[in-house]
Lab assay of single mutants.
Amino acid sequence: KNALMQLNEIKPGLQYTLLSQTGPVHAPLFVMSVEVNGQVFEGSGPTKKKAKLHAAEKALR
């Protein structure tokens, strides 16, 4: 199970927000955030999926 699945089991129905998309078309950088218990966690990556995963990993720490 990855961090997204684990976080969804603990806190179902979380909303992930796209904060920014920067970089060239062939190498974009997405920044996504998720709010858990009033705290906002951000993650970035080359795809929205990876950015969401990194945000979930930070939220689980």
Rank of each mutant, 00 (worst) to 15 (best):
E57R: 08
A3S: 15
E57Y: 04
A55S: 03
A59R: 01
N8R: 15
G13R: 10
P46C: 09
G45Y: 00
L7M: 08
A59C: 10
K11L: 12
G13K: 13
S20V: 06
G45Q: 02
Q15A: 12
A27W: 03
H26E: 15
G38F: 02
L60T: 02
E9L: 14
A3W: 15
R61Q: 14
P28A: 06
L7R: 02
H26V: 05
K48Q: 12
S33K: 14
Q6H: 08
R61E: 14
A51F: 01
E35D: 11
L60F: 05
G13Q: 06
G38C: 06
K48V: 11
K58E: 11
P24G: 13
T47Y: 00
V34T: 07
G43W: 01
N2S: 15
E57T: 08
Q15C: 10
N2Y: 03
V36N: 03
P46Q: 10
G38E: 05
A59S: 02
P12R: 08
H54I: 11
A27M: 10
H54G: 10
I10F: 08
S20H: 08
P24D: 15
N37D: 14
R61A: 14
K50C: 14
Y16H: 01
V25H: 11
G45F: 00
K50W: 07
E42N: 06
A56W: 02
Q21F: 07
V40L: 11
H54C: 11
G13D: 15
F41V: 07
E42T: 12
S20K: 09
Q39T: 13
E57L: 07
H54K: 14
P28W: 01
V25C: 13
T17L: 10
T22P: 06
G13H: 08
K1T: 08
K1N: 13
G43E: 01
V31E: 09
A51E: 03
T17Q: 09
T47E: 03
Q6Y: 10
K58H: 09
E57Q: 09
G43I: 00
L4M: 13
K11S: 13
K52W: 01
L60E: 00
G43D: 01
R61N: 14
S20Q: 12
N37F: 11
L29S: 13
L29N: 11
A56F: 03
L53V: 07
R61S: 10
L19F: 06
E35L: 07
V40D: 06
E9I: 15
L4C: 10
P46W: 10
L4W: 11
K52N: 02
G23L: 04
V25G: 15
K49E: 15
L19V: 15
L14Q: 06
L4G: 03
L4H: 06
L19R: 13
Q39K: 10
F41C: 05
M5R: 15
H26T: 12
L53S: 09
